[in-house]
Design a protein around this nucleic acid. Structure first.
Lengths: 138, 138
DNA sequence: CATCAGTTGCAACTAGTTCGCAACTATTGA
DNA sequence: TCAATAGTTGCGAACTAGTTGCAACTGATG
């Protein structure tokens, strides 16, 4: 019942030599359950609320570890603390409503293609990219 | 002789109620002369080398002021201190060589158009955007 | 279930940037 | 030309976000 993608993911982590501690399991839960894009402090607060004792330092270390495993992705919007999201989705970019801070996701194959083209023209290949639209409702 | 865009710019600042102090004039010089994308500490160092006594705190305050006046633009690449560039050029995005940190500029009308389209489709208009390609020579 | 390398919590630390405040100074009007 | 004054500066202290050293702990083998 409590099984599913969480457990499968934990197996994958173990296979990669990453120990699945109580703290990490709790954070995986919290991240999987998040519908938004929380920062480290928020994830810490949610884990604590969920009854999992975790230090903030461990939250930071865990986020770095999970990112290295490709399990989560780091979002660094202008001037705010870094936010995080599960990486199980398909690639997408972000649109931020400057009036209320809401973060929306979108993706466009044409833009992706153009980016690759431009880089190629200049003799480069894209390692990763960041596209953020800061928008206002009209 | 020392006149030109610098002086014209200073007049514009004065007209906007911004005092042109020795420190600000010096920083405007340094920024105008920069061919790269320096951060606050680097701008401070260059101003000092040029013989202008300026405190780092003032550099930060001035950068914020000049940005508010639309004179310079702030670049925040992943995990590095913020960098700055003069805003007198036409709009462009950035490509960062992940191996040596080199920053290149590029612009593509098609991407700009697609971004506006996507935002419009979702009922938004773009206030500003950020597009960075982290690349590697091939 | 013993072993032990990986992990945690704590508190101290760092980098980058901001802020309070008293001393200064660019601009304006006379 | 100069006085008045509101904006600006330098200093150091404070702040934010994140990192790290280290001793105590604990998952994952065997």
């Amino acid at each position: 019942m409590t099984d599913g993608r969480a457990t499968r993911l934990e197996q994958a982590l173990r296979a990669a030599g990453v120990r699945v501690t109580r703290q990490r399991a709790a954070l995986l839960q919290v991240i999987a359950a998040a519908e938004d894009h929380p920062d480290a402090a928020e994830l810490h607060a949610r884990a604590m609320t969920a009854g999992a004792g975790v230090s903030l330092a461990t939250v930071y270390r865990t986020l770095t570890t999970l990112q290295a495993q490709g399990v989560i992705e780091k979002l660094e919007f202008q001037g705010e603390p870094a936010r995080w999201e599960a990486a199980d989705q398909t690639h997408h970019d972000h649109m931020i409503d400057v009036d209320n801070g809401a973060v929306m996701e979108f993706s466009d194959e044409r833009i992706e293609r153009l980016q690759a083209e431009i880089a190629a023209e200049m003799g480069y290949e894209i390692v990763h990219h960041r596209l953020e639209l800061y928008v206002r409702r009209r």
